[in-house]
Design a binder for these strands. Structure first.
Lengths: 152, 152
DNA sequence: TACGAATTAGTTGTGCACAATTCAATAGCT
DNA sequence: AGCTATTGAATTGTGCACAACTAATTCGTA
């Protein structure tokens, strides 16, 4: 896997197939598409599912920290959270100690949804069809890439 | 890189950090963000840049084949191509042999833009900061992942 | 303590991304 | 030839994603 075959990547090429960035863009959309039917059953979109993952780990989190965890701007999160709220999964409460901040709380049905979501990661992991080693390698490389590219 | 440390991936976990899918989603957006200032100089968005890459390889391509190459629906491409056309980079001509099909042609300025875009891939490759081996591995894993996940 | 800078959410405007639908043109079948 | 199914592109509606901006609150410091 480490040795480069005859089709070695041309890092300076303008050919679509040579671009790691395109592979990334296509993979991300393909994975999201694979999630879609599973998440439809839960009444969630993929970004909404990511928000719920964070909330299931840590309830009552400020919008700001959600943005840091997911690397999303408030201009993306605000309307998304509004939709989650109108679907009854979360509640928004302005903090008492700092009224600039809004804390996101799970509702009862938001917390209950976690059980129904439990099968999703394994189903997706199965569909990805990577060995545990490939899975770990991919995750590490993507994190390294993200860190490098986000610098400055 | 292949051996899993104590922080081995939990494939069935609901923890955000365990999810390869989130690493993918975050990496894709981070890379796009890194492209943005470079592409701003060319007057392109990232998806528009991908379309131009295809056209620089093969001019006079039907919308259908663009969709296949980029894995995008006509409902995404149609308005995007309309913007490229109003920016003077492409031209759309209904084919004579099959009037259902619309062929996309580069204009003069569309073709000229290729020279100015030439520095982009190296700049991005540099920002990614991966070794050639890591780059090749990532590309291969992402393609495998996309192929697996797109099945059925 | 007054006041300017920084922080936090939210709004606005543009551009993807995709499902569902529509419409025209073509191909296939009898 | 005539009819039906298929194909190719576009339109519509919903939901991200982000830059630029606004408004409210808090902090720092003179």
């Amino acid at each position: 896997m480490t040795t480069a075959g005859p089709e070695t990547t041309q890092q300076g090429s303008l050919l679509l197939d040579d671009q790691l960035c395109f592979a990334l863009y296509a993979a991300s959309r393909a994975v999201t598409a694979r999630y879609r039917p599973l998440l439809d059953e839960l009444g969630l979109t993929y970004p909404q599912y990511l928000v719920m993952l964070v909330l299931w780990e840590q309830d009552a989190i400020p919008v700001r920290d959600l943005g840091i965890a997911l690397q999303l701007e408030s201009s993306t999160l605000s309307p998304l959270l509004k939709r989650l709220e109108s679907n009854g999964l979360i509640r928004r409460e302005r903090r008492l100690d700092d009224e600039r901040s809004v804390a996101i709380h799970l509702t009862g049905s938001g917390a209950e949804l976690r059980a129904r979501a439990g099968t999703v990661p394994l189903a997706i992991g199965d569909a990805m069809g990577l060995t545990p080693e490939q899975h770990a390698t991919a995750r590490q490389l993507l994190r390294l890439l993200t860190a490098n590219v986000s610098e400055r």
